[in-house]
């Protein structure tokens, strides 16, 4: 690390020692040329790492900040050139209120939306995954469903517990309203014992998520793009005129 820093410093001081743009490109991307394509009518929203809300997480955490996502979602809704949104999830969860805010915004967007859960869509990633018009999960991807809590914090007064309970109801309501899972089933998975080490909840893998009705289909990028393009076609007005 220190050696890297030293060489960086040298680079900054002496412009002649700066690597050429081609060398830089190979160092950063591992290839000399990246494919160029015309402007895409589909935009991508990636929810990676932790969902960061009211509390700024330490810099070593990989986070998706909701203050970055919200303007992007507004931009997607506003731009007439954008016809569809694809949401890529690989998240461990995070801030409940931030996650719900993002979910509600994706759910209320007027353009077709499709989500893919790759790797993991845990905890507050579940409402984000189901917020789209159609959802996919990779066969190896997992989603952990568990009750809401504040890690490490002792509940001091009954009101705190009631507040958390209400917050949990909001998550349950959102998920049951935006997916085919029944409230009883979702609660059953949420409070299941023996699946997670020293914790209650369930780790739902790929096909099981589809079986419970949480996610629409098992699939990857190809299936998601086909579905999104289909939804975009269906969303277009019959006479070909743009109506807003």
């Amino acid at each position: 690390m220190d050696k890297d820093k030293d060489t960086q410093k040298q680079d900054e001081q002496d412009p002649s020692s700066q690597p050429s743009s081609l060398v830089q490109k190979i160092q950063q991307l591992g290839q000399s040329n990246v494919a160029q394509a015309p402007d895409s009518n589909i935009h991508v929203l990636s929810i990676i790492g932790q969902v960061e809300g009211h509390v700024t997480l330490p810099p070593q955490n990989k986070t998706t900040k909701y203050e970055h996502l919200i303007p992007q979602i507004i931009a997607v809704e506003q731009n007439p050139k954008i016809e569809g949104l694809i949401v890529i999830l690989n998240t461990v969860g995070g801030d409940v209120e931030a996650g719900l805010a993002v979910s509600e915004m994706i759910a209320s967007i007027s353009k077709p939306t499709v989500s893919i859960v790759l790797g993991g869509g845990h905890s507050i990633g579940v409402p984000i995954a189901v917020s789209t018009d159609f959802s996919f999960i990779a066969p190896t991807a997992t989603m952990t469903i568990h009750p809401i809590r504040l890690t490490g914090l002792v509940i001091g007064v009954p009101q705190t517990f009631e507040y958390l309970d209400k917050m949990q109801d909001r998550v349950i309501n959102f998920v049951t309203n935006h997916s085919n899972i029944k409230e009883e089933k979702f609660k059953e998975l949420m409070f299941e014992k023996g699946n997670l080490t020293r914790d209650i909840g369930t780790n739902v893998i790929g096909e099981d998520a589809v079986k419970y009705g949480l996610i629409n289909e098992v699939g990857g990028v190809q299936e998601a793009m086909v579905k999104l393009n289909g939804l975009i076609e269906a969303n277009k007005p019959e006479d070909g005129k743009f109506v807003q």
Binding site: Q18, Q28, L29, A35, A37, D39, S40, H43, V44, L45
Partner: peptide
Amino acid sequence: VLSTNPQDFMKSDLAPGTI
């Protein structure tokens, strides 16, 4: 890069590490 446009990630002048 913070963008929803996949093409922005293809732009070589925005590649991570570019000064």
